[in-house]
């Protein structure tokens, strides 16, 4: 490869190789988007009800008995959240497969045959993400809790942001490393991860990821324009149905855009790993 940006070009073309699988992957995203829109609306309802009861009783929020709240809605929201979490695990499992195919340089898109394996891989993926974000998260939470509203707070936030960024860059390579060796342990083999990164060159590694993120940003801004046009169009046709419109837009976005972005980004990540172990 002449230039590392060729990986990005290859990644952008990759989802077009099998539109059906792209759309199946998109269905998962569409389910998530629709669910989260619905959950958001429902939790707003619950919150509104709680505030209403609060105003009538003149008490604090913690004094409201649970039975007074719309219990059915709460159970619904909890249930839907669990469903959404399971679906997102499936998405992560599929992303695992994408990276694997990319590292092995397979040209086709991974299939959806083995749901259970996808689920297990998704849990692995999720654990690694969680583990890498836990330190900056702790710094942020503990720092905020201890310092209160003193002048140290901005510094704490800055440090935790820095840690988040560092963790993110390590995380991508860690995920690749785990998937390449197919073992969870390898995700925390820091020596190998840092070796891989310096093998490619730190500046190059950071640069290619930033470049990919910029490309994603440009695409999403452009798509945002188009989607907002569609929204206006829908709003003109269907009057007074903001909820329906937002769900339709969320489904469109999940079906085509999020799935495309997911495929693209993970494909590029896999290619970066392939370049780094050369």
């Amino acid at each position: 490869m002449a230039s590392i940006t060729d990986c990005v070009v290859e990644g952008l073309k990759y989802p077009f190789k099998d539109i059906n699988k792209l759309l199946i992957f998109g269905v998962l995203f569409a389910v998530i988007s629709a669910l989260s829109t619905f959950i958001g609306a429902k939790s707003l309802d619950i919150f509104r009800a709680a505030v209403h009861i609060n105003e009538m009783n003149n008490g604090t929020l913690s004094q409201i008995p649970f039975s007074q709240l719309p219990t059915g809605d709460i159970y619904l929201v909890v249930g839907l959240t669990i469903v959404a979490f399971i679906v997102s695990l499936l998405i992560m499992g599929y992303q695992y497969d994408i990276i694997k195919f990319s590292i092995n340089k397979k040209e086709d898109l991974p299939g959806f045959g083995d749901i259970w394996a996808m689920f297990v891989n998704g849990i692995k993926y999720f654990i690694v993400i969680l583990a890498y974000n836990i330190i900056p998260m702790l710094v942020l939470v503990v720092g905020t809790a201890f310092t209160g509203e003193s002048s140290v707070l901005p510094i704490i936030i800055f440090i935790s942001m820095l840690l988040f960024i560092i963790a993110y860059f390590l995380l991508l390579m860690a995920l690749n490393n785990m998937i390449a060796h197919d073992s969870l342990k390898k995700a925390f083999d820091f020596r190998e991860i840092i070796d891989n990164i310096s093998n490619l060159g730190r500046g190059k590694y950071v640069g290619i990821i930033l470049f990919t993120l910029i490309v994603m940003m440009i695409i999403s801004v452009a798509v945002g324009f188009i989607l907002s046009f569609i929204t206006v169009l829908f709003a003109a046709i269907i009057n007074n149905q903001a909820f329906v419109i937002s769900i339709v837009i969320a489904i469109i976005e999940g079906l085509f855009i999020d799935s495309y972005m997911g495929l693209f980004f993970n494909r590029v990540c896999g290619s970066i790993y392939r370049e780094s172990i050369k």
Partner: peptide, 12 residues
């Protein structure tokens, strides 16, 4: 797509 990526590079 190739053209698009080249364009992004130039702009950056």
């Amino acid at each position: 797509i190739d053209m698009f990526i080249d364009g992004v590079k130039v702009v950056i």
